[in-house]
Design a protein around this nucleic acid. Structure first.
Lengths: 138, 138
DNA sequence: CAGCATCCAATTGGATACTG
DNA sequence: CAGTATCCAATTGGATGCTG
């Protein structure tokens, strides 16, 4: 069933469509590192090393790549201070700040529902182990 | 700089930490197919084939996998009607509905900012092509 | 219809070493 | 300090064929 929003999209964009640019945007922002980085940058410029320590488990490569992508997309502003040793700070642009509330929401939802979901996973795995092909008669 | 929310997390969960279950939850829900599926299921049960046609470009394998993961996480309820040929319907659980607004928000944001981001990407690529290592003197 | 199984190409991710 | 470069293992994704 189509809703009114499906027909009247935003500026003609429709993320359901493979070729639409909004699909590539959705693909770019919908991942854990982007979510955590937007959240981590919410209160002002942060140095590369601080971000690396804050996002536990991220590799230098992934951090560089994600920040570069976000910078290219206009969500993040990178400032290089040509000192020795160099200092680089990252901060959200206006565009980046415009998605902050959503990213905070996703992160918060993950934290608030983590236990519930772990329980659901365990229950599912037990159920599958008991009956590999659950034929539900409805 | 730490905010109060960083110290007083939700039920002890903190998605910044590698080992925290909320991190795996964040990783599971932050991807384009999950976002589009939650959105597509918002107004009631939908059949597998309908979803496949709606999410342009998704393969049968990816659709099955994403739906299975969401079912395992308790976000989606799968109902098999043992007819011939079989009919399978997917619908959001209460947990799935609780993340709907956020997913709609992400999808909508992608659509609303797609043009702006494509422009930013083009500008970035041109800038890099002109000057491979932009040394910004601040 | 709604899948599962399989094969294979392509992308991703980690570890390590090096540099202005 | 903040990267780049490289190598390699592991995961992902598409295409195809088959089935209750």
């Amino acid at each position: 069933m189509e809703t009114i929003d499906d027909l009247r999209e935003h500026g003609g964009a429709n993320a359901y469509l493979r070729g639409c640019s909004s699909r590539t945007v959705l693909d770019a922002i919908a991942n854990k590192w982007t979510c955590l980085l937007v959240d981590a940058l919410q209160s002002g410029p942060v140095r590369f090393g601080v971000l690396r320590r804050r996002l536990d488990g991220i590799t230098q490569k992934s951090l560089t790549q994600t920040l570069r992508t976000m910078e290219r997309d206009g969500m993040v502003i990178r400032t290089l201070y040509p000192t020795i040793p160099p200092r680089v700070e990252y901060e959200l642009s206006a565009l980046g700040r415009s998605v902050l509330a959503l990213m905070e929401g996703i992160k918060r939802w993950s934290e608030e529902h983590a236990v519930e979901i772990v329980v659901a996973r365990d229950a599912y795995d037990v159920r599958i182990a008991r009956d590999p092909e659950p034929i539900q008669t409805t």
